[in-house]
Structures are given as C-alpha cells and as structure tokens.
C-alpha cells in the first residue's frame, strides 16, 4: 500500500474500521514510515481531545423554545439575540457549541494535513511525468524509456506505485 493510500486510511485505522487485510497493510507501512507514525499519533491526540469533551444533549426545551421563536413573524432580531444569549448561559448548550467549534476547526485542519501529505506523495510523480512529457524534444531521449517513466508515474498517480525490481 502506498504512502498516500495509508495516509487516507489512518483515521479509519484508528477507529478500527479497516478490514483485516487493509489493517495488516497499514501496520506494515507504519513499521517503516516515521511520517505516518507521527500523523497517527497526532490523529490519536485529536481523537482523545474530542473524546474528553462532555457528551451532553441539550434539553428538549431549548429546541421547543427556539422553534416557537423562529415561527414568530420576521423583524424579531432583538428577541432572537436575547434567546441566543440566554441559551449560551446554559452549560449543556455551551458545551455543544464548544464541541461544534472544535469540530469546525479540527476537521479542516486534519483534511488540510491529509491533502498536503497526498500532494507530497503525488508531487514527485507529477514532476517525473511532466518532465518526461517535456523531454520529447530531446533528440536523444529514448521513447521506450519515456513510455516506461510516464506509465510508472500514471500507475503511482492512481495510488499503486510500482517498485523497481532488481535486474538480471
């Protein structure tokens, strides 16, 4: 399994959502990849942080009251603001809002990190592929070797990097 493929599966690995073969492949990659081990540890810390937050349900009265106020005619900005203020005074609602805020920050951060890792993984292949395509103008470039480089890069870009085999 490639570095990019493992990066995409770290969260599922942490949540024990992978099947046995995928889990074995990720274990094997983690044994050799310090970057993935570090990312896994970071994801674990985020999960622990989220898990430590109180798992509270806002009282039903909050939604009943909110619905009643929303159904009132427009132009009631003052009362709506008053409701928000009173709602945030309640510990359960405040905790739910804090959880939402953490999720809104953590999810894009985690996604951004995964995107950066994926870009690092495909970047070298994109470089090789683009350079090989541009080398067409070199009169001494071997077309068969360009074909090998480009096709290897294509395979890597769909997540299945080929490992060169020892020659004869």
């Amino acid at each position: 399994m490639t570095h990019a493929a493992v990066s995409q599966r770290l969260s599922a690995y942490l949540d024990r959502e992978l099947d046995r073969s995928e889990r074995t492949a990720v274990d094997a990659h983690l044994a050799t990849c310090a970057v993935c081990r570090r990312d896994l540890a970071e994801l674990g810390r985020v999960k622990t942080l989220l898990g430590a937050l109180p798992d509270l349900e806002p009282p039903a009265a909050v939604f009943a009251g909110a619905r009643a106020r929303l159904e009132r005619p427009a132009g009631m900005v003052g009362p709506a603001a008053e409701w928000l203020r009173s709602a945030f005074r309640r510990p359960a609602v405040a905790a739910a809002a804090a959880l939402l805020a953490v999720l809104l920050i953590a999810v894009p951060m985690a996604k951004g990190r995964i995107d950066r890792l994926q870009a690092a993984n495909v970047g070298v292949e994109v470089y090789i592929r683009e350079h090989a395509l541009l080398s067409v103008t070199d009169p001494f470039a071997d077309p068969a070797y360009l074909g090998l480089l480009i096709s290897d890069a294509n395979v890597a870009l769909v997540g299945q990097r080929r490992t060169p085999e020892e020659g004869r």
Binding site: A119, A120, G123, S135, D138
Partner: peptide, 22 residues
C-alpha cells in the same frame, strides 16, 4: 532548454504540499 535537452523547475507553496522525503 538548451535546444537539445530539457531542465524543468517546479515550485509549490509548502502550505499546499508536505516535503517529499524521497
């Protein structure tokens, strides 16, 4: 290009791409 072979330079903001450890 030197009209025969090619050199290619790529530049990517680090904010968009982790450094490839290859």
């Amino acid at each position: 290009s030197d009209w025969i072979s090619v050199l290619t330079v790529f530049q990517t903001p680090s904010s968009r791409m982790a450094f490839p450890e290859v």
